[in-house]
Computed example of a mutant assay.
Amino acid sequence: MHSTHDRRGFIVKTGAALIGGIGILGTGQAAQASTASSVNAAGDSSLPPLAVRLANQSGNTITLAWDPPPNYDLKAYTITVSDNGTGECFGAKSGVTMKRLRSGMTHELTVVYKENPVINPNPQTSAPSQPVRVALPPAADTVPPAAPMNARVVFDPNIISWNLFWDESTDDVTPQADLQYDIVFDNGLSSYDVPMGQSVYAESGFIRAVDSAGNRSALSNHWTS
Rank of each mutant, 00 (worst) to 15 (best):
F206A: 08
I183C: 06
D178S: 13
I160G: 01
S212H: 09
Q180M: 14
S161K: 12
A140C: 04
D178T: 00
A177G: 02
D156P: 01
P145R: 07
I159A: 10
L164V: 01
P175G: 03
G197C: 11
A139P: 04
E168A: 14
P144C: 11
V173S: 06
D172C: 06
I207T: 12
L164D: 03
A209M: 05
A140S: 07
A135V: 07
Q180R: 15
D193K: 07
S191L: 14
V154Y: 04
M196L: 15
T142N: 14
P175V: 02
D186H: 02
S212A: 12
E203Y: 03
R208S: 11
G197A: 02
S212K: 10
D167P: 02
I183F: 02
R216P: 00
I183W: 01
V153T: 12
P145I: 03
S190Q: 13
P145G: 08
F206P: 04
G197I: 00
F155P: 13
D211T: 13
A213E: 05
V210L: 12
Y181A: 06
I160M: 08
E168G: 10
I160T: 11
W166M: 03
F185P: 03
N215K: 11
A177T: 08
F155Y: 15
A213T: 05
L136E: 00
Q198E: 05
V184H: 03
V143L: 02
N150G: 07
R208F: 01
E203A: 12
A140D: 09
D167A: 07
S191V: 11
N215L: 09
F206I: 06
W162D: 15
A202K: 14
D156M: 01
A139N: 14
A202D: 13
R152C: 04
F206C: 03
V173F: 06
L164G: 01
Y192E: 15
D178N: 15
S169Q: 05
V210S: 07
S212N: 09
L136C: 01
T170K: 06
A140K: 11
